[in-house]
Computed example of a mutant assay.
Amino acid sequence: MVSSADKRNYSEDQVEAEAERLLAKLMHVECEASRSWNLDACREIAPLTLEINELKKEKGAVLLAHSYVEPEIIYGVADYSGDSYMLSLKAKEAAAETIVFSGVVFMAETAKILSPQAQVVVPDRASGCSLADSLTGEQLRELKKLYPEAAVVCYINSTAEVKAECDVCVTSSNVYKIVASLPQKQVLFVPDRLMAENIRVEMKKMGIEKEIVSSDGTCIVHDNFDPETIAEARSKFPGLKVVSHPECTLNITERSDYVGSTGGMMQYVKATQAPYFMMLTECGLVERIEVEAPEKRFISGCKLCPYMKMNSLEKIRDVLLEPRPEQIIELDEELRLKALGSIDRMFEIAEGTAHAPGKGC
């Protein structure tokens, strides 16, 4: 297929101006997982970012990018970037004809649930998630039979069919507030076994009596950090602050100075004075903070999510040009409305507002 890059000609001045814009954003990215950003590297991608930004305007598209995708996407072409909760809110507010979700498929499904009037597309349909892929709607229906009195809570890292089977959806930024608010003593939490363990600990600290049962999914990034790495880093770098996600194992979260959502981790690092930080999460978040707070110093420890890294500028350009059928997110309307109920409940508890029926966003 001939790409529009072969059809659109940009002057040297346009490319140079775009390269300079990109470099101003990307020059501080030094994460070992990233490419080296200099003016030549920015000139190389400038025609693509120019083209994508033009295509977005032409097609009435908005581009949502998770913090874990590559920095050239976040700072070159994204309209909004952040964690799953922030992007869920942006999807809810969107009035765009097309939503391009640069992240993983369950996030694009959430955008479609909240914005049914929009065409929602993903750059790579293979960009799955070990958590979302660990549990089907049918498997959850069988689990619910074992715990008929339990409140059924799903982490947002789940498929639309799982969300449709749940009482309320949560994110890592609001999970403790929502679980604590539920009247039921027993909570069936899916699909993240490790987050369930962290919820048990947090409920005990809060003095709230809850029985948390869970399915057995884990995140392939956050399930693979070694506590010995923390001890070794603390011995070498006095004053080090260790930051982790509640998808991590207890032997990581209990040794961390801060545990929180992607957005929460960013805020903590930016607001905290420390000589060094170790981020036990996906490397994309480290790259974002390097750009937005270049004075911060990081000790190696992050890991890559292979699914998030399936996103690229070329794939975003191509899906804007002519999405293939498998790149378009389609949901049965009955299932969508059931899934919307669990997300509405999340917004109602976390934000004090519910999704307005009939507005389709």
Results as ranks from 00 to 15, higher is better:
V291L: 05
L335F: 00
A78H: 06
L337A: 04
E287D: 05
S244N: 13
V190C: 07
M266R: 13
S4Q: 14
G60Y: 10
M1I: 07
I73V: 09
E232R: 12
A196N: 02
K241V: 13
T49V: 06
D257A: 14
S84N: 11
E51V: 06
N38G: 00
G264W: 10
Y268H: 12
V77S: 08
N157I: 05
E54W: 12
Q186S: 13
E254T: 15
M86T: 15
D223Y: 06
M266G: 13
Y176F: 15
C169W: 00
L140F: 04
E97R: 15
R35P: 01
M86H: 15
G264L: 11
G60T: 09
S84D: 06
V201G: 10
D226M: 10
P325M: 03
R21E: 08
A94K: 11
A196M: 02
N251Y: 13
I113L: 07
M1R: 13
I230V: 10
A95P: 10
K241L: 13
T218H: 12
E97T: 15
V15M: 01
E93N: 14
P123E: 10
A41V: 04
G284Q: 06
A132Q: 09
K56H: 08
R43L: 02
A160S: 05
E282W: 02
T253E: 15
Y276C: 14
S36F: 05
V69L: 06
P47S: 08
T272A: 08
E161M: 01
W37K: 01
R141E: 15
E18N: 08
V121H: 06
L250I: 14
S34H: 04
K90Q: 15
R193E: 12
G341C: 02
I99D: 14
A196P: 03
E109F: 09
V168D: 00
P357F: 03
T171D: 07
K25N: 12
K296Q: 07
L240M: 12
T49I: 05
F101N: 07
D83I: 08
K205W: 10
I289Y: 06
E209C: 12
K185I: 14
T159L: 06
K90R: 15
V201T: 11
A180M: 08
E314C: 04
E44M: 02
V100S: 15
F106Q: 12
E247I: 12
R125K: 15
T136Q: 03
A271H: 10
P191T: 04
P246L: 12
A132S: 14
V100K: 11
F277M: 09
E287A: 14
L240C: 06
P148Q: 12
L337T: 02
C248G: 09
V100M: 14
V175D: 07
S134F: 08
L280G: 03
E32F: 02
S81N: 14
G217N: 04
N198C: 12
H28C: 01
L63N: 09
A95H: 15
N157W: 00
L285C: 02
L182S: 11
H28K: 00
L87W: 07
I329M: 03
A78K: 03
R193K: 13
E16P: 00
G239W: 08
Y258D: 13
K204A: 14
M279K: 11
K57W: 05
E348W: 08
L331K: 00
A108G: 10
C305N: 01
